[in-house]
Structure formats: structure tokens, C-alpha cells
Design a protein around this nucleic acid. Structure first.
Lengths: 321, 321
DNA sequence: TCAAAAGTGTTATCCTTACACCCATGT
DNA sequence: ACATGGGTGTAAGGATAACACTTTTGA
């Protein structure tokens, strides 16, 4: 009965066909710069209409990105499916679902293709790079404007609420900086109309004050923020950084890559211990002098670890051993 | 130039419209049973064709689930978007993208509606409940059949590989049980043709040996597995359990709920410390004798914690304090 | 000789784990 | 009294954080 009702209800509806897009956040790290693959004037993520020809979404994505850009993609994971994005230009009649993916690769592969265009993701999110301490834009630009925004709320309660959200997201008032809150920060700035995309809806053009960070087409910057957040979170519990490394690397290079992604510095001795005790890498026996200073041992990723260990991930106090 | 090329390429393609479905994994826990909302003969997850009327996917989902089942949904999160599912009945001409969601609620809300049909998720995944130790089905049924399957590989290397995968997924050979590997286990059993869904493709009907676990329509069981895995992972770093609890509860009730989800027992004293030191709950001052034994203190969830703390989540050895 | 990078120890502190034990109620 | 569940304490072990220090190269 239940099933029959449901089917009838469905059949009664109009055929609600939609368009589906694949959107890719393709990331590489080159000497300290976390880069994202873009098209156009570096203001759009690569995207392609969804085809059913491929066996799966992932393989479809892999195929077209590799074909289009010459990038062999290593790691791929689904990010999020957007359908409720704020349409640019008001009533856009096109109904589009965007299925977004995060992919990791190495920029060197790109040299043969002229098309791809890499940009540091901190061009789009200048407030996210805390490797040299809190960047000026946070304290000099964002903080005052966010405070202003908070004061603009009609009620006392709402003012406090806004202030608190800003403080948590950006680590004001001695709350610490949390590098994973990329999306929350972006959405806060959007809500406060401090970034260009927010002004597009005609919501309010506002003063022509310069907006921090390079903007992107449609909601692509939001998708990029989602990707960065996911990656910053993921590197902490899965060995995905190695997808971004050359086959052979020094521990400091590895560290610099992690720092580029996280947007903050890590402690060298402790980082090395962490890596080594997890047995993620093994020495090649070679060294390199190209890094300057004392020659550095070269390592390679132990692919075997992917088979051996499924990282425990326990955080519950399990019973009886 | 790049952008123009891309647009041209797009325009050249045929209009590739698709159908989109929302599929919900709605979970509640009632006295030790983790339950999932189903329709039909309890062999399908609730689903609905995607409409663009709603502001967002989430609000759309919330609306129709609440309307259809009388369930007010607390927490909602997107699970995954499937488009590459193995079509039932070979060449199904319908092109469907399924956007799946995980939602948490409380079963009590359901009493007014006759429609919803709750089933313990361990009916569908009997091998996932380790609260009373390793369930017999694992050792008596799955293990021998998986070994058989592993031996069936043509090459030595492939045999070892299969054996290792089975061991990791199910914790054979003194590798421990990892409750989060729900999806891997399902997919392994699928590959080994040990569950009903695998036989549907006509791949091979095989012997009519009884398949463990109740099957579901299409790939719904796979979606459910994805939801369980996500939830088992999530309860460890986000206070989502409380969405499944009554407004007021005892710590043991909370523990039993966690155990129901995780499918394993946790250590009581340590669990309590964990909860209390994170300041997730506060005493109501009341006690209850309904649990038997000594009266238990009643607690409520401190909703304020959601604002205050953004759980650190650091696992990198950050530099200079 | 000095700068720059590589690499090693050492300690204090916190968190997790694994126990053992006592308390309050109903039957 | 005793079964049942509620609740507390403690000590060992491991991981993390913070810091100081030595080594090896090129300029």
C-alpha cells in the first residue's frame, strides 16, 4: 500500500528533468604554492556537462579532466552536490545540479598542455594563509568590516550572535585560528557582503570598496572553499598529501606541502616523528643537495601502507580490550 | 580563449537532461535498536523526484520527509550522489542521479502517522552488530564463503589480495574489527556475490544458498551502508548523537544509543568522563527510577556547546604555540 | 667562518586505557 | 541479602607539544 501510494504520487508529477554538471577542484602544490586548476581568466573551475557514457561519475571526471588538461589525476573524491546555489542574474531558467569533485595531481604533468591555468588558492582566499602569521587583510580589513557588519544588526541579540560567529570563524578574541573553517569564513563574508559574489545578486551594490580576494564565476569560489576545507581536514587522517608529491622527496618538502595546504606552519621535529612513526615513508638511500644546506635524505611513500593499515580512527572508549 | 573553447565544446553536445532523485536515510534509535525509515515492504528507502521549488536541497528533503512521514528531521547532511549505480534489469533507459541524505530524528515523533515503517538496520546488515561479540554469521557463513571466493581467483597474487581485503574488512587473522568499514564490507560481499543484490545483474545466479541480511530495492542497501558508515564515523567527532535522544536522558541511555550506532560496546566509566569533560551535557537536577537499580541522574544536551566550541580537530604538530 | 638546512634528543603534560571499587534502589 | 544499574577513583602507558641542540653542506 505504502509503496503503491508513493509510486502514484511520483507518476502524477511532471517530468522534472534537469541538467547536471561535473565541477572539479583540481589541486597541485608547487614550491609552496597550493594551486588550483582554472579555466577562462582563471575565474572559473573546470566543468563539463554530465554524460552517462562513463561507467561512473569518477571515471567520467577523470577522463575529461585528463583529456582536457593533460593532467593524470591521482586521488579523486566527491565533494558535494549543489542545486540550491544562488543563481547569477536572478531568474535563470536553467536548472542545473552541480556535482563537485576534489582531485589531487602534480603540476609538472601539465607542461605539455597550454590550456590549464594554475592559480594559488590564496589569490582567491588571501585571509586563509597564516604561514607568516595572521595576514594583514584579516586584521586591517576584515575585522573592522565584520565588526561594522555585526553592529548593523537590528537587535542586541543578533549583534552578539554575529560578533561571536565572526570571532569563532576568524579566531578573534584569542580564540585560536582554525584552518578548517574555510567554508564558514567564506559564507560569513558572503553574508556580510564583503566579497564580490555577494554584491552580484543585486542585494545591495554597496560602496565600491575593494573586496578582498579574487572572485570567481557563479558559485565556484564557494566550491573551491569546500574543497580546501575538505583537503585541510583530510590530510590529518589520510595519507593523501603524497598524491601531491614527486615520487621521491625530502621530509622538508613534504612538510612544506602540508604547510601550504594547511596555511600554517608545523613543528619540524614533531612532524618528522609523526611521519616516521606512522611508517608512511621509507628512505630511498639517496640524498639530494639541491635543497641547499646539508644534503637531505630522500624518501618515497610506502604504498603498502594503504593496504596494511586502515587507520584506527577510534575515539570511543571501547570495552574489554 | 580557453573559456570560449570550453563553451563551444559544451554547446556542441546534445542536451543531456537527466532525472534527479532525493533519497533519504532517516535514522532513529529506539531502546537499543538503530532504526531506518523505509517504505514499501521495508525494502526501499524513501525517495522523491527532485523539485526545484525549494530553496535548497536540504529544505526540499526536510519538507517532503516531514510531510510524508510526520517526522520532524533534526540533523540533515548530504551523503553522496550516485549516478553510476548498477542498473537493475540491465539496460534501463532511465537516467537517474540519486542525491542521498542522512537525517537523524526520534522515532516517537512517528506515532501519528501510519505510513512510516521502521526497521533495525542490523536486519539489513546482520554482520555489523558486534555488541555481543562477533556475530555467528561472520564466522560461520561469511568467513568460509569469503575464503572460498578468495581461492576462486585465477592467480596466486589475486588470491592473496582477496584474502587480505577480506581480513582487513572483517578483522580476520587478529586484525581488529573496525566498525567504520561498513561500505567496504558491503562492497566486498557484493563482489563475492554473497548478497542478493549481486545476483540480480544476471552476473551469475549461483547456488540458491541463503544470502545473509535483508536486501533492498536497487542500490538502496548500498546507500544505507554509506549512511551507517558516515554516522559511525561522525559520532566520534561531532555531537550528533543528541539528535537521536529525548530532550532529557540518562548517561547510560546515551551510551546505549552510541553502542547501537557503533555496533559495539563502550567502557562505561571512560564514556562518562569523555562526555562530561567535553561539557556536552548538563544535569537537569532530576533523577529517574525507571531504569531499574539506583536512580539515575537526568541530563540534557548543552546546545550552547554548538556555538562555543568548534572542535579543534588538530592532528598536525603546529609550530610556535 | 657563517648561513642554511638537516636531523636528533629530552622533558613535561595531557589524554586514553584498563581496571577496581563503592552507592542507591527494588524485590 | 542480592541483583541491577549508577557512579567514582586511580595508576600505567602512550601520544603530543615545546624546546634545545648537533651535523653537514655551500658560499
Amino acid at each position: 500500500m505504502d509503496a503503491k501510494d508513493t509510486r502514484k504520487a511520483r507518476a502524477g508529477r511532471k517530468a522534472n528533468d534537469v541538467k547536471a554538471d561535473l565541477i572539479a577542484v583540481v589541486v597541485a602544490v608547487t614550491d609552496g604554492h597550493p594551486c588550483v586548476l582554472t579555466i577562462g581568466q582563471a575565474n572559473a573551475l573546470p566543468s563539463d556537462p554530465f554524460e552517462f557514457d562513463h561507467r561512473s561519475l569518477q571515471s567520467g571526471l577523470r577522463a575529461w579532466v585528463e583529456q582536457q588538461t593533460g593532467q593524470p589525476l591521482g586521488y579523486i573524491e566527491q565533494l558535494y552536490t549543489f542545486a540550491d546555489r544562488d543563481r547569477i542574474g536572478a531568474e535563470n531558467p536553467q536548472r542545473v545540479i552541480s556535482i563537485s569533485y576534489l582531485a589531487l595531481t602534480r603540476q609538472e604533468y601539465a607542461r605539455d598542455s597550454a590550456k590549464p591555468c594554475w592559480g594559488s588558492w590564496y589569490d582567491y582566499f588571501p585571509w586563509e594563509d597564516h604561514r607568516s602569521g595572521t595576514p594583514p587583510v584579516v586584521l586591517d580589513v576584515l575585522r573592522p568590516r565584520l565588526i561594522e557588519w555585526a553592529q548593523g544588526a537590528p537587535e542586541v541579540e543578533a549583534r552578539r550572535e554575529r560578533q561571536r560567529r565572526a570571532a569563532v570563524a576568524f579566531g578573534f578574541d584569542d580564540l585560536g585560528w582554525n584552518e578548517e573553517l574555510v567554508l564558514q569564513r567564506y559564507e560569513l563574508l558572503y553574508e556580510a557582503a564583503l566579497i564580490e559574489e555577494a554584491a552580484r545578486g543585486g542585494q545591495h551594490a554597496g560602496a565600491l570598496a575593494p573586496m578582498p580576494g579574487r572572485s570567481m564565476v557563479a558559485d565556484h569560489r564557494r566550491i573551491l572553499a569546500t574543497g580546501i576545507a575538505r583537503l585541510r581536514s583530510k590530510i590529518k587522517y589520510r595519507p593523501v598529501v603524497f598524491e601531491l608529491m614527486a615520487p621521491v622527496f625530502t621530509l622538508l618538502q613534504l612538510q612544506r606541502t602540508v604547510e601550504a595546504l594547511a596555511g600554517r606552519l608545523v613543528n619540524k621535529p614533531n612532524f618528522r616523528r609523526l611521519i616516521e612513526q606512522q611508517e608512511l615513508v621509507e628512505e630511498t638511500g639517496e640524498t639530494t643537495t639541491e635543497t641547499g644546506g646539508r644534503p637531505a635524505k630522500l624518501y618515497r611513500f610506502r604504498h603498502a601502507i594503504l593496504d596494511e593499515t586502515v587507520i584506527a580512527g577510534t575515539k570511543l572508549p571501547l570495552a574489554r580490550s
